[in-house]
Amino acid sequence: NIFRIAGDLSHLVSIFILINTINVKKSAQGISLKTNILYAVVFVTRYVDLLYSYTSLYNTLMKIFFISSSIYTIVMLKKYSKNIQQYNDDFKIEYLIAPSFVLGLIFNHGFKFSEILWSFSLWLESVSILPQLFMLQKSGESQLLTTHYIFALGLYRALYIPNWIYRYFAEGRFDKLAITTGIIQTLVYSDFFYVYYQKVIKNIGFSLP
């Protein structure tokens, strides 16, 4: 359906903006390494099913792309972040990883290693942007491309919400776990979305309150 395709496309766009920004500027300025490490963890733990289940060629290619691009991003960020003297990327990610793992243990589709990892990845994804937003807030201002990247990334899960509503009516299917974490993820972005609309769409400077 249209919402899901649009969501996946905005996810792809966010990754291309990110990689392109790093490569063009040859700098990791304003980009959180920790957020990108969390996304790599999210993709690897969610897509372990690549090894034992097959949905479609689209699904497989996208999963391989997300895993490989997230690892590539980390390598590039590591390479360029050495030169930055004041690198405000100091969010304690253990405060995100540990609760996500506990929530994965509590809410899952079966007490199996693969199901716990899948649930963990959903919870972790919902809060993975926090180091990046934290960094943006600390630095006070940001490059336009960085904000476009964060916007496209947030838009992806936001578009999954109408996708789930559509699927509920069209196919009679829904998943409480995916929807709950998807809504949390969108809420985490809500302040950013509002500021993005106010400042970027109306073409003024950017800062988070």
Partner: peptide, 10 residues
Amino acid sequence: SILSAIKDEL
């Protein structure tokens, strides 16, 4: 099933 429906997503 519901599970396979959601896991076809990314």
